[in-house]
Amino acid sequence: MNDAQATTIASNLDTVRAEIRAAEQRWNRAPGSVSLLAVSKRHPVAAIEAAIAAGQHAFGENYLQEAEEKRHALTDADIEWHFIGPLQSNKTRAVAEGFDWVHAVDRLKIAQRLSAQRPSELAPLNCCIQVNVSGEGSKSGVAPDEVTPLAHEVASLPGLRLRGLMTLPEAVVDFAAQRQAFRQLAELQAELVQQGLNLDTLSMGMTNDLEAAIAEGATLVRIGTAVFGPRPEKTHE
């Protein structure tokens, strides 16, 4: 990566942060209440290094083999690693041992494996339950009416800290429709909080629906393209 590319990433980060702060103001959100997760999947280690130099420290990865290579290459960097892709049973140990967050828990079996495999010397693994608010058959996530029992089960596991809910809704351009999907997730979380669960994270919103997500209470937005540019072709898993 050359200096010009690194400068572009730094500039992109400034732009996205400004968009987040402006949306906070427009929708009466507290300043700083929305965090940026830079989605670095398929982008090289040098791109992550450029983002770190520009003050970004939370990164999301979807593909475990690729993420592991990056983690090992950046062992000395100050990074909070988030695993945001679908998680299979045979990959839970690597996530439990090497990540700070996992965003796509949608089965009790996966949560139990993550909890059991989380090293005792580490803090509990922060996790979000993925909810399929749009009911798309092609996407992972628990159905909205199944969230409550799963959330209470996950919250009881000693190796995990349930932080909240995550969704990847159907891609639509209508702003009101975008808001409706995110509102559904926010309402589900509010119900869980009323039931006594201590939740503080709504992981929702990406490059094309960031504004709607913030309007409906997102606390963490997952932004890739607007930070790093178009993704290279997939080469892992």
Rank of each mutant, 00 (worst) to 15 (best):
D3L: 13
A4K: 12
Q5R: 14
A6Y: 04
T7D: 13
T7G: 06
T8E: 07
T8W: 01
A10P: 10
N12K: 12
D14C: 09
A18D: 10
E19V: 01
A22S: 14
R26K: 14
W27M: 07
G32Y: 12
S40D: 06
H43I: 07
P44Y: 12
A46D: 15
I48D: 03
I48T: 14
A51S: 06
A53T: 10
A53I: 05
F59V: 06
G60K: 03
G60Y: 02
N62H: 02
E66K: 12
A67V: 08
A67S: 09
E68A: 14
H72N: 15
D78Q: 14
I79M: 05
H82Q: 00
H82A: 02
F83G: 01
I84N: 02
I84Y: 03
R93Q: 15
R93L: 11
A94G: 01
A94K: 13
E97V: 13
V105G: 04
V105L: 10
D106Q: 05
L108K: 08
I110Y: 02
A111Y: 04
S115L: 08
S115P: 08
S115Q: 04
A116F: 11
S120D: 11
S120N: 10
S120M: 07
L122H: 15
C127D: 01
I129Y: 03
I129F: 01
Q130E: 15
N132E: 00
V133G: 05
S134F: 05
G135Q: 02
E136L: 02
E136H: 02
G137T: 04
A143P: 00
A151C: 03
A151M: 07
H152Q: 14
E153A: 13
E153F: 00
S156R: 10
S156N: 10
L157R: 07
R161E: 12
G164K: 08
L168A: 00
P169I: 09
E170S: 08
A171E: 08
Q178K: 15
A181T: 14
A181M: 15
Q184R: 14
E187L: 10
Q189K: 15
L192E: 10
Q194T: 14
Q195C: 05
Q195K: 15
Q195R: 14
G196M: 04
G196I: 06
G196N: 04
L199H: 12
L199R: 11
D200Q: 11
D200G: 12
L202Y: 11
T207V: 09
T207D: 12
N208A: 10
E211Y: 08
E211I: 11
A215V: 11
G217K: 07
A218P: 04
T219R: 13
T219Q: 12
L220S: 00
V221H: 00
R222C: 01
G224K: 08
T225G: 00
G229K: 03
P232F: 05
P232L: 06
K234P: 01
K234W: 04
T235Y: 05
T235E: 11
T235C: 07
